[in-house]
Computed example of a mutant assay.
Amino acid sequence: MEQKLTARPDTSDYRALLAQATPLIDVRAPVEFTQGALPAALNLPLMNNEERAAVGTCYKQQGQQAALALGHRLVQGETREQRLAAWKAACLRHPQGYLYCARGGLRSHIVQQWLKESGVDYPLVIGGYKALRQAAADAIDALARRPLVLVGGCTGSGKTLLVREMATGVDLEALARHRGSSFGRTLTAQLSQASFENCLAGDLLAREAVWQTLPSPFWVLEDEGRTIGANHLPAALREQMACSPVAVVEEPFERRLERLGQEYFVAMQQAWCEAYGEEAGWREFGDYLHQGLYAIRRRLGLQRFAALADIQAQALSRHQQTGRHEAHFDWLIPLLKEYYDPMYRYQLEKKSANIVFRGDYAQVKAWLAERYGG
């Protein structure tokens, strides 16, 4: 017996869709989805990129009716049945979801009608992606201007872990899929700027309910630059961060090394090998390390870069042969002491008037919990 869905009305409650990460069926073309999408959206297009381009050209040259007729000719027969089957399956997997197109117009209504004719009554997002995108931008503009405190500290201090432990902590690096440094790339490709902002809006809205319960609520964020990899922070957030108090985590150098070794050498090597297999995984891991160093070669000076690259290559070989990652410290320690630590201390000095607390990881965590209710 075919599963039936309870009929629900179309919606314009954009903030709820973002805050609850409601499952969404995006029927726009893949190129549109890549340019900007919602966190919980699944791309099942009515038309692929080539079909959409052909219909768009027809619309410009011959008008809406001709374009609509062409669209129906392109998506018919087996093609239509395959796409309809995919939509139906997604609807049944996500009975509380919605579908949307660019502006809540023809494409989403066509898909909705075809679904209804096949026995599936599924609601759409009024105004489509454009309305959701505007709601996300408005949410960031409003919520990012609320009070916040930054967690600062040199690389390996545990800033990201600390942010994640706070009830109102917003992990910008997780949202950006990048750890912020030249070695910040992860196995998951970064999203477009619009998609990153949509994810940020959803995260802020999801934590707003917690915010309301705290006695002295503040967002807790890591002290970041203007960009995280290829994504830049929205203007409202940058402006608020620039004048916000900073709590600095000051960890012993050996503890920082231990964290960095586990995160960048142990975890990353395992992740690459799990994704690509043992042989290719080690090769990809080595490329990742080399590219991270190569990206800052001019700042290091080409002679110093060449020396560290040689040490890195030898360390990678020993790591692969012995299974022990400590050889990487031979190039990581000078990189921290000669480049990353001086750079961050210089940046932090420019914010010295905003520093309100210093301590180790446990002390900063306790201070945040007591002072900000996080």
Rank of each mutant, 00 (worst) to 15 (best):
V170K: 01
K116N: 14
R255K: 14
Q112V: 01
V27T: 00
V248M: 10
L161W: 11
G128S: 03
R371C: 02
G77T: 06
P334K: 06
L44V: 08
R297W: 04
Q82G: 07
L5F: 10
F218A: 07
T213V: 02
V220D: 04
A21G: 12
T34H: 10
Q113V: 04
R299M: 06
Q3Y: 12
G277T: 07
G71C: 05
Q321D: 13
S118A: 15
G153D: 04
T155G: 10
D141Q: 13
A85I: 08
L257K: 04
F329L: 15
D310Y: 13
L257Q: 03
P123C: 02
E274H: 14
Q312S: 12
G202M: 03
Q82P: 06
G153K: 00
E274P: 04
A67P: 11
L70N: 06
R255G: 14
P245E: 07
A353C: 06
L300I: 01
E263D: 11
R133N: 08
P30A: 04
T188G: 09
T6G: 09
R52Y: 10
L5R: 06
E165K: 15
Q347K: 13
Q312K: 13
L124Q: 00
Y339A: 03
A66W: 13
L187P: 08
Y372H: 03
E208Q: 13
L260W: 00
C199V: 06
G292S: 01
D141I: 08
A137V: 13
P234A: 06
C243S: 14
L42V: 02
W87F: 09
D203N: 09
A267V: 09
S181Y: 09
G71Q: 03
M1Y: 14
Q64R: 14
A267N: 15
S195V: 06
P334R: 00
R52P: 07
A176E: 02
V111W: 04
K365T: 05
V210F: 01
L42T: 06
E284W: 13
G292Q: 02
A306L: 10
S352K: 15
S352P: 08
G286L: 00
A29G: 07
L336C: 10
R304K: 09
I25N: 03
W272V: 10
H290F: 14
A85Y: 08
Y129C: 02
A295M: 08
L132R: 03
L161N: 14
G323C: 07
L5A: 09
K88L: 11
R179S: 08
L115P: 00
A235L: 13
A19I: 05
L237E: 07
L308Y: 02
L348T: 08
Q113A: 15
C273P: 01
R52H: 11
P334S: 04
K116L: 14
A137Y: 10
L143Q: 05
V75W: 05
P45W: 03
R107Y: 00
V55H: 02
A313K: 12
A19T: 06
L24Y: 05
L132C: 15
R133H: 12
